[in-house]
Amino acid sequence: MAKYEKLALSVSPTAKAQAAAEKLVKTHAFVPREEAEAIVVLGGDGFMLQTLHQMIDAGRILPAYGMNLGTVGFLMNKREASRANILDRVNRARSFEVSPLSLAAETRGGEIVRVCAINEVSLLRETRQTAKLEIKVGDKVRIPELMCDGALVATPAGSTAYNFSANGPILPLGCGLLALTPISAFRPRRWRGAILPDHLPIEIRILEWHKRPVSAVADQREIRDVASIRVEVAHERDLTLMFDRGHSLDERIVGEQFAY
């Protein structure tokens, strides 16, 4: 008996994804998301993140199987990787658990904004002035003053994205670690970041925020003029991504480290 029988469909608004959806609905009877056991996502990485965030916000998280109709497709499967029908592909896929980050950002006005991030939480300076950050990990201040363009906290699933571009480490899935990576660090100049156990909360306080404003970005959501942030792993919101065998996310993470 198939593990999943009722599939929902989430389609990017791009013409390419819409055309693929027209063909796919002729081969399978998709159901509304509230009735589904799993969801098929047509689009690119950005649309996959958008769909995952929608499910987190709705409080009903379904296993997600992506088909790449975007550019990179790191979180997706190849569109034509198999001749099997979509239900068979979903049921033959390997599942990977991905733990998102929980961000609590306090603005300069005292408002607390709580959002999730699947790839990373980043802090970025808003003006030409270098940001000054105090970094606390666990219950100890580790860097009293980091002068930089910003800093980010990345999950293993997001470690190959912005984090890797900022010279951060690639983390294997299931490692129980987070990457804390500076962006263009000026002082201490030799600090290249840290690999941290994911049970430790990370708190970053913005110093001199009145003249060195900083924004926080959780995946695609920006919060401007923050005074401090606290980042923790939200295991209660764990996500399930499904990949065709031979094209799994852990293999892609390993492969990225040998790309040249």
Rank of each mutant, 00 (worst) to 15 (best):
K211G: 10
V121K: 03
R252S: 12
E203V: 14
R142G: 08
E37N: 06
P182V: 01
E236T: 13
D88S: 12
V11L: 04
Q220P: 04
K211E: 15
G73F: 09
K136S: 13
T107G: 10
P201R: 01
V115S: 08
V90E: 08
V25G: 04
A58M: 09
Y65R: 06
V121P: 03
H235I: 02
H28L: 06
M1C: 02
G59V: 04
R252V: 05
V98Q: 03
L24C: 03
R142I: 14
D45N: 06
L152F: 14
G70K: 02
K26T: 11
Y65A: 06
L101A: 06
A104R: 13
M1E: 05
V121H: 06
L173Y: 12
A194Q: 07
S122W: 11
A104N: 08
G246I: 08
V41C: 03
L42Y: 03
R189Q: 07
P213F: 06
P188F: 02
N167S: 12
L146S: 00
H28T: 07
P172I: 07
Y162Q: 09
G66D: 05
G150H: 07
L249F: 14
S248H: 11
E208A: 11
L103G: 00
R252G: 08
K3C: 10
A161V: 10
I118G: 11
A161N: 12
A194D: 10
L52V: 05
V141Q: 06
C148G: 12
H235T: 11
S165H: 13
L124V: 14
T240Q: 14
S159V: 07
E251P: 03
P32I: 12
I253C: 00
A161K: 03
I204V: 15
L249T: 12
S159L: 08
A104P: 00
A58W: 11
E256Q: 11
G110C: 11
G46C: 11
R94C: 11
T71I: 10
V40P: 08
R192T: 12
K136W: 01
A194S: 14
L200H: 00
E134P: 03
F186Q: 07
Q257E: 14
A58N: 09
H199E: 13
D88K: 12
D57Q: 11
G59Y: 13
C116F: 14
E256T: 13
P213L: 04
N163T: 13
E208L: 05
S165R: 08
L239A: 10
C116N: 15
R252H: 09
G44L: 01
A2C: 07
E222L: 05
T130S: 14
M147A: 13
V141I: 14
L173D: 00
L239D: 08
M147W: 15
R190Q: 06
M48Q: 06
K136V: 13
L177N: 01
W209C: 12
E222G: 00
P169T: 00
E256V: 14
P100V: 14
A185C: 09
H53E: 01
V25D: 10
V41H: 01
L207V: 10
P144V: 10
G46M: 07
Y4P: 01
C148K: 07
E120A: 09
G255K: 15
H235Y: 13
